[in-house]
């Protein structure tokens, strides 16, 4: 009865091979997901282990990204700070500024008086009240000198620095780039460390999924054998296991996303307080969309790869007898 009712439908629509192929993959994908949901606790435990493994490099990556975001503002160009001798008077400063402005290497000069420097320091250091105890302003006046673009390269800036250090009114002139560069070097090391960590933990994910799939293959030994007996190709038998690996990976990625997001949320309060002390507009970035996509896809891919390795190794061993 039912079969009869379906006959006309079958005749009117002749689905293409691609359509059938897609449909079959969808079926396997859904059924392997269904199989995972049938043992939710076991699935969740495995996925959580994966999630933790993935969340470590992912979380560190986001933190690094944030650090780079702060330091990004410093890249704009080198600037030189010329600390003036304590006994320099205003007239001398004006003359100096006039002289320096004539130099073709210099684009802009900002003058920070001793008083300005003190006010700024009081505001940003958080030492406001302690500084009031001081009878005298210990801070020097500073000229913040921005070289023109072509004199901003490390080499040119260094030449300019040497020249400015000759200035009799200058107590000390220093290139602000130096510590930026050091900071960048440290960031580079941190990035390298994250990459190493990510590689090691990716390997862990591969092994965890590989082992999970291996157990799954053992559990379904009879099924595999019988499916081979009725003429299933290897790729047909592989497919559900590959999808299982994929789902594990994706689920692990989702858990990692939650772990990272929750951690960042927990950190954001104290960090905002800290950066507030520096009058910074800095806001802790959470996982943005591209990073999230990379995280989930990468994790799913690792799951797929782990499953593929396990399946390749263990399916061959099962032959019907």
């Amino acid at each position: 009865m039912k079969a009869d009712a379906k006959k006309p439908v079958k005749k009117s629509s002749s689905p293409s091979m691609i359509h059938i192929w897609f449909l079959r993959h969808l079926q396997v994908a859904i059924s392997s997901l269904g199989r995972l949901t049938r043992s939710p606790i076991g699935t969740l435990m495995t996925a959580t282990v994966l999630g933790i493994a993935v969340s470590l490099p992912a979380g560190m990556w986001v933190m690094l990204d944030n650090v780079k975001q702060i330091s990004g503002n410093w890249d704009a160009g080198a600037s030189l700070s010329m600390f003036l001798k304590a006994d320099t008077d205003e007239q001398q400063v004006d003359e100096l500024i006039g002289k320096l402005k004539l130099m073709p290497e210099i684009q802009h000069i900002a003058y920070v008086t001793k008083d300005d420097a003190l006010v700024e320091f009081q505001q940003f250091s958080g030492l406001g009240q302690a500084l009031e105890i001081l009878q005298e302003n210990p801070l020097p006046a500073v000229l913040i000198i921005t070289p023109t673009l072509q004199h901003s390269t490390p080499l040119q800036a260094d030449l300019l620095l040497k020249q400015l250090n000759q200035e009799p009114l200058a107590d000390l002139t220093q290139l602000d780039m130096e510590w930026v560069e050091r900071f960048h070097a440290i960031t580079e090391i941190a990035i390298r460390a994250v990459i190493v960590l990510a590689s090691v933990l990716s390997l862990a994910v591969l092994l965890i999924i590989g082992n999970t799939i291996r157990l799954e293959i053992q559990n379904r030994h009879d099924e595999i054998e019988i499916t081979k007996l009725v003429g299933a190709t290897n790729s047909f038998i592989r497919r559900p296991f590959l999808y299982t690996g994929f789902w594990y990976g994706l689920l692990g990625g989702l858990i990692a996303w939650f772990l990272v997001t929750i951690s960042l949320w927990l950190l954001s309060g104290p960090i905002e307080k800290l950066t507030g002390l520096y009058q910074s507009q800095f806001r802790l970035d959470v996982l943005d969309l591209p990073t999230t996509v990379v995280l989930l896809m990468g994790s799913a891919f690792l799951g797929l790869a782990g499953a593929r390795i396990a399946v390749g190794r263990h399916l061959r061993a099962i032959e019907p007898d």
Binding site: A3, K7, P15, I20, I226, V230, G231, T233
Partner: peptide
């Protein structure tokens, strides 16, 4: 099972199995 592994359509499978 033999029909599924050889990729028969759902309608065909139902008809043949019955």
């Amino acid at each position: 099972m033999p029909l599924i592994v050889s990729g028969a359509s759902r309608a065909e499978t139902g008809r043949r199995v019955r």
